[in-house]
C-alpha cells in the first residue's frame, strides 16, 4: 500500500460515515407502515405501530415468502431463493432501509405515516 491508497481509504471512510449520519437524520420516530411490493406493485400494507408480532405469507416469484412483523420492525423470515439474502438481512426498522428479494421480485420498505394519518378513531 502506498500513500495514495491510504488517502483513498480515508476518503471512502469519511464519505461513508458522513452518509450514514446523514441518513440517520432522516429517520424518524413516527409510526411506521411497511409496504410490500411484488414486481413494483404494492400488494400489502402492514401497520407497524401495533405492539404485536404478526406473520404474513406473501406470494413471491419462487413461492411463498414468510414475513414477520413486530412493533416498528419487519423482516423476511423464510423464502425460496439461491442465496437467501433477504432472509439473512434480518429486521429493518428505519424508513430508509429496504429488504430486496430479487429472486422473488419482492421489495419491502418502511414508510413513516407522517404524510398519512397521525391517528385513527375507531
Amino acid at each position: 500500500m502506498n500513500k495514495n491508497d491510504v488517502r483513498l481509504v480515508i476518503f471512502i471512510f469519511i464519505m461513508a460515515i458522513s452518509l450514514i449520519l446523514v441518513t440517520k437524520i432522516f429517520d424518524s420516530n413516527d409510526p411506521k407502515t411497511a409496504l410490500i411490493y411484488y414486481e413494483n406493485e404494492l400488494i400489502k400494507k402492514i401497520d407497524l405501530s401495533i405492539d404485536k408480532s404478526n406473520e404474513y405469507v406473501i406470494k413471491g416469484f419462487n413461492g411463498d415468502v414468510i414475513v414477520k412483523s413486530k412493533k416498528n420492525m419487519i423482516k423476511v423470515s423464510d423464502e425460496i431463493s439461491p442465496l437467501n439474502i433477504c432472509s439473512k438481512q434480518g429486521w429493518i426498522s428505519s424508513s430508509y432501509e429496504v429488504i430486496v428479494c430479487l429472486p422473488n421480485k419482492i421489495l419491502i420498505k418502511i414508510e413513516s405515516n407522517q404524510n398519512e394519518f397521525d391517528a385513527v378513531v375507531r
Partner: peptide, 30 residues
Amino acid sequence: YLINAGGNVKVGDHYGDNRYIIGIENPVDV
C-alpha cells in the same frame, strides 16, 4: 401531543406547522 385511546383521539398543537390528520375507521370494514 397526540392521545390515541381507540375511540377517543385528542390532539394539541401540531408538531410541525400543519394540522393533525386523523382517519375515522369504517365501521363495516375496520
